[in-house]
Amino acid sequence: MLMSVGSLAAMGLALGSVLGVASRYLSVEADPIEAELLAMLPGSQCGQCGYVGCGQAAAALAKGEAPVTLCPPGGKATVEALAAKLGVKVDLSQVVDSGPQIAEVTEEICVGCCRCIKVCPTDAIIGAAKQIHNVIREACTGCSSCIDVCPTEALAMMPIPVTLQHWTWPKPASAQH
């Protein structure tokens, strides 16, 4: 009895100290820049950049494997923030800000299957089984995750129309040359 307790305690102590030493010497340091980059990304894990999620994209950015223009939903502002953080020069005029787009349901075709609701990262689609679904415009981030899962192609990405409130003056033509 005493023997077994003693030997188990000794083994625990020994293995514990090995683990302790290993965590000190063999630790993998999380890149602090990665965390900062991750904070700049939208975090909707939509995968449009080609990576599994925003964390992987941030890791690739930190290693310099991905261009700062990788995030379509982030738009120009994200590109600028990433470029500033990484100290990269980026020609913003080349960034095709295809303009903000959001998903829209064609109500005549929607069968109410609920598949899009499950994949939406921001819960921007409302509806229930056999009920027509709809997109909450303010909550949709334009990640287009829902487009692929729709069995009837009732979902499509539509550019957000420019309104009086969102219109901005273009840069003067004389600034171009």
Binding site: P42, G43, S44, P73, G75, A77, T78, T122, A139, T141
Partner: peptide, 18 residues
């Protein structure tokens, strides 16, 4: 730019909520 920053923050909140 300010608006899109706010939007990104709102997206984060929505993702967390989900």
């Amino acid at each position: 730019a300010e608006r899109s920053k706010l939007r990104t923050e709102a997206t984060k909140r929505l993702v967390e909520a989900k």
